[in-house]
Design a protein around this nucleic acid. Structure first.
Length: 602
DNA sequence: CCCCCCCC
């Protein structure tokens, strides 16, 4: 097969001209520096006429080399690149090409040979080449090119300040080159923080910047913090130049960039108001809430959901540091039929308003796992947006306002207790009895597929102590205050909690059960908060909710233990979790039982 | 030059 290279494209590019998506052949590669995250590779590329050994691979493409995908003789289309002029040691200028995006058209194994007879490109060829000069670029192709920095035409900026009228892609920034101007949108901006340690004290704020090539974090300390804090605003676009670049500490940032920047006293920032639609705003990679359940703890992820409920602001003291923490737990729901808890901290927790059930887009939250249940937690770098103007957000709004609000949901963050998961064996009430479950000291856990045959709706919701760990039922003092006997305190506020008594039946028997807050929420498909409000303001909806849940089937995880009440021993069975039936799983279990019972070997 | 992501 024949592969056509973009013959002559290299000399146009090396002279600073424009060439859209050239097709070239890779003739070799060489590691030039660093290891791990700092690895960089140089490529020898050919357009059939010339070869050039100063093509650098952007680090995010390193994998393609390491995995062998980008082997020698590969024919590639260079979808996006920038060129940069290096002042090398005494030999004058040298232009390098930084490859940002690449499509492999044919693997090296298939091509198997050098195409054409390319001559090595040198800077001497540059001067003698007939290609257009950098000042007068080649005629533009019909499509506007993103390959080259565009002049920031008509900018309100003093060009001598910025030293250049061209903007550079964020992805091309490195500590090795300091003459650049970026045109970037502010995705996120931190609050001002102060620090005080052995090395001194001061204040700072940081911001996350992006353009269509990538993203980078920038931090302004002390004077620069003061100078720029008010000016920098989320979602606005700025020309920024003269910052110090340094290797990013990946431990503290999830942005996709090997470097981060620090504002210095030379730093120039000017707002850009023209032609800013080409600068992307925050890029999300939303996961459906149901899919979050399958991710590992500590994953940093983006999601979007409707805030169905939020806890009151809670104050607690961190055991390890003694720091006073403020938090609020927000329940997000989406069309995947799932709910998850998102924990907000500090100011974000304090200022959060759940009243209108806003759509919340969250970027860079951390997946936490506690006692087998998963939830999201905000980090300092997490971005939260309320009712963002995004298609996903509008879709969710429509869904929630037209039925989604009362949809039956699986709560990923519901607490599950005990050791074995729901994936364990299912047994029946008769089997539980035969095994004498609950007769021991510690209580026993088992899973069972059962139907909710009756719910005791009266008193299923109560006003509980607002203290995080307490949950004690409060005594209404009839004066606007509520008394907690356990904390020996009075509170003006409370949180609703559920304590649901019900009957569960399976084909072999039935059992009186108790479901505490989270388990009851997942059966009723609503938060304790919502149910609490219903109990006060909409009695009909309240009783309807408890009627509707009757005869629903769940996979229950129970904890059972014999307890004695006034000389009478009774099994106390508590719902640890209640999940809707996954019929694929349920059928697989049935088939297995049938095979076992009928003597067919499995 | 900092932040180590908090709690049940």
């Amino acid at each position: 097969m024949d592969f056509k290279l973009s013959n002559g494209s290299l000399e146009i590019i090396m002279n600073g001209g424009v060439y859209e998506k050239p097709v070239m052949q890779v003739l070799g590669s060489k590691k030039i520096q660093g290891s791990g995250a700092n690895e960089r590779y140089r490529l020898l590329v050919s357009d059939g006429k010339h070869s050039h050994s100063f093509a650098m691979l952007a680090t995010q493409l390193n994998d393609k080399l390491i995995t062998g995908e980008l082997s020698d003789y590969s024919v590639v289309q260079i979808d996006r690149f920038v060129t940069s002029v290096l002042k090398s040691t005494g030999k004058g200028e040298k232009r390098v090409m930084i490859i940002l995006d690449i499509t492999i058209l044919a693997p090296g194994t298939e091509v198997g040979k050098k195409i054409g007879n390319p001559q090595s490109w040198t800077e001497e060829s540059a001067s003698s080449a007939p290609a257009p000069s950098p000042i007068k670029p080649a005629p533009k192709p019909s499509q506007p090119s993103n390959n080259f920095p565009k002049p920031s035409a008509g900018s309100n900026l003093n060009s001598s300040l910025l030293g250049s009228q061209m903007t550079h892609p964020i992805a091309s920034l490195s500590p090795y080159q300091n003459k650049w101007v970026i045109k970037a949108r502010v995705m996120n901006k931190s609050a001002i923080r102060t620090w005080s340690n052995a090395k001194g004290e001061g204040k700072l704020f940081s911001m996350d910047l992006c353009d269509d090539s990538g993203e980078i974090r920038a931090t302004a300390f002390r004077n620069e913090c003061e100078k720029f804090y008010d000016m920098i605003q989320i979602d606005k676009v700025y020309y920024i130049s003269r910052c110090q670049l340094k290797t990013a500490n990946k431990q503290f940032s999830s942005l996709k960039n090997d470097y981060e920047m620090t504002f210095t006293s030379d730093t120039v920032v000017a707002e850009c108001t023209e032609d800013i639609s080409t600068v992307p705003s925050v890029k999300y990679d939303f996961l459906a809430i149901s899919d979050i359940a399958n991710k590992s703890p500590d994953t940093i992820l983006d999601t979007i959901g409707v805030c169905r409920a939020a806890s009151d602001l809670q104050e607690l003291t961190a055991k390890s540091t003694g720091k006073l923490l403020k938090k609020r737990e927000v329940t997000l729901v989406d069309q995947s039929g799932s709910a998850i808890t998102l924990t907000l901290w500090g100011n974000e927790a304090e200022n959060f308003d759940a009243n209108t059930n806003p759509v919340i887009a969250v970027k860079g939250a951390r997946l936490a796992e506690f006692n087998g249940s998963k939830s999201l937690s905000c980090l300092g770098s997490t971005m939260l947006r309320t009712n963002p103007d995004l298609p996903d957000a509008h879709r969710l709004r429509g869904w929630y306002d037209h039925g989604g609000a009362s949809a039956e949901l699986v709560n990923i963050s519901a607490r599950v207790g005990g050791s074995s998961g729901i994936s364990g064996e299912w047994i029946t009430f008769t089997e539980a009895e035969a095994r004498k479950l609950g007769s021991g000291e510690k209580g026993d856990y088992y899973n069972l597929l059962g139907v909710l045959t009756f719910t005791f709706a009266d008193n299923a919701v109560y006003k509980a102590c607002p203290q995080e760990q307490c949950n004690k039922k409060l005594v209404d003092q009839e004066n606007g205050l509520f008394r907690c006997e356990k904390c020996n305190r009075e509170y003006p506020n409370y949180k609703y909690r559920l304590l649901l008594g019900a009957n569960v039946s399976d084909p072999t028997g039935d059992q009186r059960i108790t479901a505490f807050n989270e388990a009851a929420e997942s059966m009723l498909g609503k938060s304790a908060e919502e149910i609490g409000r219903m109990s006060e303001y909409d009695k009909n909806a309240y009783s309807q909710l408890f009627d509707e849940v009757k005869f629903k089937t769940f996979v229950f995880k129970f904890r059972t233990k014999m307890e004695t009440y006034s000389d009478e021993a009774r099994l106390k069975t508590t719902v640890m979790s209640a999940q809707p039936v996954d019929y694929k799983d349920a059928n697989a279990r049935l088939i297995k039982s049938i095979k076992a019972l009928s003597g067919i070997e499995v």
